[in-house]
């Protein structure tokens, strides 16, 4: 029986908000995998996002990319951001997260998948967030394709608008609102 190889090796990271520690010390690489079977072995054995405590994150990034803006693969990039209302934690959150992971490991964006860095899910009392990070916020065609395909994969209604924010803008935003570089 041969395992099904993935195009990329991925790392799954966990972040728990412990204010007594430095930010980076709260970030842990759980494990890496590069086959479909190993993905499921991992996914089936970790808590679903809806069970995590507030302030926690999961991140899944291509091997060699760390889940932070500062990483050389992320610093010129941005993210398609899905913000969820509080009541969606029970109903949609885990489903959206799995669909996001399947999009990534299955190279669901075709040739545009080369711009994919990874995905982050933030569990927050004020509303959970899921994002797909890409490497170059200037690649308009690639970013727009990924946004449209991602909306489709999540089954989001056409009229629901999602925004893409460059990390550079998010990092330097003055108020709590970050301007969108693209919307679909």
């Amino acid at each position: 029986y041969m395992k099904h190889p993935l195009q990329n090796r991925w790392g799954l990271w966990f972040y728990k908000n412990d204010k007594s520690k430095m930010w980076q010390d709260n970030l842990r690489l759980i494990t890496k995998f590069d086959t479909v079977e190993d993905f499921w072995a991992l996914y089936n054995n970790i808590q679903p996002p809806s069970k995590l405590s507030s302030g926690c994150d999961y991140s899944m990034f291509k091997d060699g990319i760390e889940p932070m803006w500062e990483d050389r693969s992320n610093k010129c990039g941005g993210r398609w951001l899905i913000t969820l209302a509080k009541q969606h934690r029970r109903t949609e959150l885990d489903h959206f997260w799995l669909e996001t992971l399947l999009c990534l490991i299955g190279e669901g964006f075709g040739s545009f998948s080369r711009d994919i860095c990874g995905s982050v899910i933030n569990i927050r009392a004020k509303g959970d967030k899921i994002a797909i990070w890409t490497s170059n916020a200037e690649n308009c065609e690639t970013v727009t394709y990924i946004g449209k395909k991602y909306k489709e994969s999540l089954g989001l209604p056409q009229k629901l608008v999602i925004g893409y924010q460059a990390h550079a803008d998010t990092a330097t935003k003055s108020n709590s609102i970050t301007k969108n570089k693209f919307v679909v």
């Binding site: 195009q7 479909v36 499921w40 399947l102 490991i105 299955g106 190279e107 669901g108 998948s113």
Partner: peptide, 18 residues
């Protein structure tokens, strides 16, 4: 070059196969 692409149905089927 080639790219290994799996659709979600295939990935979900792999989850249930032993």
């Amino acid at each position: 070059g080639t790219r290994i692409i799996y659709d979600r149905k295939f990935l979900l089927d792999c989850r249930s196969s032993p």
